[in-house]
Design a protein around this nucleic acid. Structure first.
Lengths: 203, 203
DNA sequence: ATGATTCCATACGCTGCAGTATGGCGGCGT
DNA sequence: ACGCCGCCATACTGCAGCGTATGGAATCAT
């Protein structure tokens, strides 16, 4: 018997609490972010929580900033295109956000945006993320030769669409969901001002 | 002194509670729908509530059905077009849903949709409303000469856009918000398959 | 070893809220 | 006038959750 694996005695830090909080946020929304629920999930008591955090609000702000940093990292990753591949990258962004694959991320996104409707600090962070996202996407359109105003319109449409789609029960018209989503992507991405053709089977 | 206006002694019925509940729903979301909070708002105690309702869930279902009925009435009102005026009606629908004017209705819409993510009965009702909305909007596109599949794509894009827009902080690119929204409406509504020109200043 | 520090458990008070039980007031019929 | 009934107030139990106080175990420094 070298070591007893009875009690794992893993030291928790702030980040462990934040990660668990994000998980609960995805499942239950902001109103589900409760100290004792989190503690039970982490197999500790709230005595631990109040060691790492001042109060509940302290955790909430940590969650918000964690989300913001993650989103910014993701934006630069998703919108960085090889020169000449900007249109493909636009389609990629639409696909990433509108697929069931990133369901968890979208649930968090929706929870944070719902949160932002009643919390000024959450709203400010969402506004920051929106701003970065929209500007990054607009750069892609601009690189495709789309004029500034149209690029603004199309990238606004892009993000409004993907967020809105995620809160619809959109299995309507489901005779061919893949075709539906591809056609919508074309409506968003393809401009008459573009010199190049659309990628994939959309040409 | 004919009548003493001291205590209004207004009889409350189920509908009064439902209306107050919808108001709270718009302001606080589903988690704010609490019996005692509603009672305080209506200047009564929860003794009244439990006379008109079996429990909290009873009220919730009443709110959901009230919302559903109201939405259905609104859909047939907003999508009923004079023959030949279908395109104008499409623009009207986009405008109604994306304007700040109907902010309250959109807040309720978002609250119900957030609700639907964790409540099966709410989800079923949202699905019903979505179905009716999408089919009604698709009829407008079909009447404009747009083929079926494209009509499905465009009306899905339409509703995803208006819902998504409402949960963005979209005062970005705000040099001319009116132009931005008009251009986006054109992207959604104007099809190459249409015989007629777009209304307003969009032609 | 021993004291200090870190991290967590336990126990407590308090508030908000769901639901129940029961009493009370006013209008109604007869 | 009297009793019934519709509508609401009051008072209670019970639970969940926030925050605090304090004790205790493990780890580290010296």
């Amino acid at each position: 018997m070298e070591i007893a694996p009875a009690k794992q005695r893993i030291q928790l830090d702030r980040d462990a609490w934040v990660q668990a909080a994000v998980e609960v946020l995805a499942e239950e929304g902001v109103s589900g972010l409760r100290v004792e629920v989190l503690a039970k999930r982490l197999k500790v008591t709230k005595g631990s929580f109040y060691w790492h955090f001042q109060d509940r609000r302290d955790l909430q702000l940590a969650v918000l900033h964690d989300w913001k940093e993650g989103r910014i990292r993701d934006i630069v990753k998703q919108t960085r295109a090889q020169p000449g591949q900007e249109l493909e990258q636009i389609y990629h962004v639409i696909d990433v956000y509108s697929t069931r694959r990133s369901r968890r991320g979208m649930l968090i996104e929706l929870a944070v945006r719902d949160w932002a409707r009643r919390d000024a600090e959450a709203a400010a962070i969402v506004a920051e993320v929106d701003d970065i996202r929209l500007r990054s996407a607009r750069e892609l359109f601009l690189a495709c030769g789309v004029p500034l105003e149209e690029a603004s319109s199309r990238c606004t449409l892009l993000y409004a669409y993907v967020f809105g789609l995620s809160l619809m029960v959109y299995d309507r018209f489901a005779e061919d969901p893949a075709r539906l989503k591809r056609d919508i992507a074309d409506l968003i991405a393809r401009s008459a001002a573009m010199k190049q053709a659309a990628p994939g089977q959309s040409g």
